[in-house]
Amino acid sequence: MLEVTGKMVWKGAKAGLDTTWELAKVVVPTAIVVAIFRASGLLDTITALFAPYMGFFGLSGQTAIVLFSGYFINLYAAAGSILALSLPVQEIAITSVMLGLCHSLLVELPVSQKAGSPLGYIFLIRLGCSLAMGWLLGVVLP
């Protein structure tokens, strides 16, 4: 019933290594950029700017960087930001769920459009669900 060959293991391992490499290319630079942001005080400026809105989702102001990098770039960039900020688990949880629903918009919206769904429609549904779920978790999570 279950057949395992060396070829399958090798193919899978190669796919895993490829993913890890793609990941490293984004996660490491993002972590460095965010670390620079933090050291230069730029992060504080961004944090202060967005703090009032992030509170709506039960998040601290600095997580705005995580959401932006996830929404516009991809989840790996968001992971890099999370690593550089050393966020508390609850904020990691809330941002992860928000980003799961809505991410990599610059790449994925055109893909959805190709599969026959209007761009604006998919954008609104993804961002709307993400923000609604963030608000809900901010209220529900202790």
């Binding site: 490293a24 490491v28 972590a31 460095i32 950029v33 890099g80 690593l83 550089a84």
Partner: peptide, 14 residues
């Protein structure tokens, strides 16, 4: 040291 810190955090995450 800032660059190092970011680099290490990123690589550990990867």
């Amino acid at each position: 040291s800032v660059l190092w810190e970011g680099l290490l955090q990123g690589m550990r995450g990867v």
